[in-house]
Design a protein around this nucleic acid. Structure first.
Lengths: 200, 200
DNA sequence: CCGCTCGCTGCACACTGTGCAAGCTTGCTC
DNA sequence: GAGCAAGCTTGCACAGTGTGCAGCGAGCGG
């Protein structure tokens, strides 16, 4: 399933080379100075080939592995039916973040680029929270509600997305000193406590 | 301060005409079929003039009044120092949403366009939550914390942003039957209660 | 009334993203 | 192993976005 032949392996290599070149050039030159032409040249393929692998420049930076990998909604559905929504979400998010933290160097570089280019920030959320809409549906399935009309599923999905975003930000500021999962737990605990105002 | 002369009035008219034409064409043709050239033609100005008023196509749709209007962070700072952060945020958000709901028809059209084009969704958040970063700083000032390192300010700002986004979504689904402020209160109450899982 | 300011306009340009029609390598079949 | 289909790569043309620059003309101040 991982490699079915030389052709697919070469294709994956090309995609990886393009993604790596994109990230490297973004760090070296700044995101706005990265052109698709330069990326293609750095990866030794033609300009046109870039768009055979990525539909847009941002995709090469933020979705180097492709969009068909297991997403948060899938992980959430995989949790046993007995557990509560919040606990299930916490477990699913842990799995997601652990996987991302596996190549921490690339993740840090990516966040660095995004931090310097706010226009990319929304897309980063998609990495962590995948398709927030799907997550809302998965939550609705678990609570027996309707994702369209009821408040809870959409709100929880959006709030989880926000928690992940904040977690990425803090992880980056602390230069990865604390694991993503630990930081996420802090955020989720604060949420579960109803966001009580801390003493000052 | 509102109008200082014929020239400024004409400029504001041009901007308003461009914004209105953008919204109208987006509803009629779909966002992806709206070209700047068509918008400029509909507003009876040249192509180049469009970019003298808006730095990008999305800005004409989402920030028709300009980005220098009073933002959420300013409203938040304007709240009396005695009140708690959550209460202050609620009041500030009420003011913001009430103002937006004043021209409900345009707001509904805008949300319709955004709902059909997820790529625009992140920008809509900016309308409601303004600059989330500034809000985080304002929260930090109120709690005597540091917006960079402490969890609370950034988390609360992100969560408020999420609540506003969900509120817009529900308002749109219900076709504006319930005021924005009422829907926002429901979301904030759920958050303050720690997002307890509803019975199913 | 004269000059200055400033919005509007046209032109040229770099870049993104897409459709189409090739060419060439891979992998499968006979 | 020869051929054939599939599909990755490539070049070309094109629509559209966004920017820099220079000129024009109407509003504004002295």
């Amino acid at each position: 399933m991982t490699e079915r032949g030389l052709r697919e392996r070469k294709k994956a290599d090309t995609r990886a080379a393009l993604a790596a070149a994109t990230l490297r050039l973004a760090i070296e030159l700044g995101w706005e100075n990265v052109t698709v032409e330069a990326v293609a040249a750095a990866a030794d393929v033609s300009y046109r080939t870039f768009f055979n692998h990525f539909s847009a420049k941002e995709e090469a930076l933020l979705f180097p592995a492709g969009t068909d990998q297991p997403r948060l909604s899938a992980r959430l559905r995989a949790q046993p039916a007995g557990t509560g929504v919040l606990a299930a979400a916490r477990t699913a998010l842990h799995a997601d973040l652990t996987e991302l933290e596996a190549d921490a160097a690339a993740l840090r570089d990516r966040i660095t680029v995004v931090a310097g280019n706010p226009s990319l920030l929304p897309r980063l959320v998609e990495i962590g929270a995948a398709d927030e809409r799907e997550v809302a549906v998965a939550i609705a399935e678990r609570t027996g509600q309707d994702a369209e009309t009821d408040l809870y599923p959409g709100l929880l999905a959006a709030v989880l997305s926000a928690a992940v975003r904040v977690t990425f930000s803090r992880w980056h500021v602390q230069r990865g000193a604390v694991p993503l999962t630990t930081l996420l737990d802090e955020a989720l605990d604060a949420l579960a406590a109803g966001l009580p105002e801390p003493p000052h």
